[in-house]
Design a protein around this nucleic acid. Structure first.
Length: 111
DNA sequence: TCACTGACCGTGG
DNA sequence: ACCACGGCCAGTG
């Protein structure tokens, strides 16, 4: 705490940076992020990192990150269980049963 | 100090 | 096609 950190949890910051790079109206999944980071990090770690993303600056659009099934797995972790779906719908993404429609079409992947 | 869990994904039988 | 297991980091009890 105090002062901004250093090198520890460096891979976590990479996750934040990648999620912030996601354009509006697009979504990605944990595996792709972890894989692109190319470090010792798996999807589980990415999800855990996002758990602390609420303290990251600037805020990380975690609502654009879903699981491989295109399901809003982390919606329950938001301020409200419907906030994630509401944000995605606001970006033009249709969601049915907590699942993104045409997930592949809205899927975004880092270069 | 040790052990388990966590917003997951891929592979094997 | 379905079920079970391993992997990786950090935080909490």
């Amino acid at each position: 705490m105090s002062t901004i950190d250093e090198k520890s949890t460096n891979w976590i910051e990479k996750v934040y940076a990648m999620v912030r790079q996601i354009p509006r109206g697009k979504v990605t999944n944990y595996g792709t992020i972890a894989d692109h980071i190319g470090v010792k990090a798996t999807s589980r770690m990415v999800g855990w990192a996002m758990n602390a993303s609420h303290a990251a600056t600037p805020k990380v659009p975690a609502h654009r990150v879903v699981n491989r099934n295109g399901v809003l797995t982390g919606k329950h972790h938001f301020a409200t269980p419907t906030l994630m779906q509401d944000l995605l719908e606001a970006e033009g993404i249709q969601i049915i049963d907590d699942k993104i429609v045409d997930f592949k079409k809205h899927f975004w992947q880092p270069s």
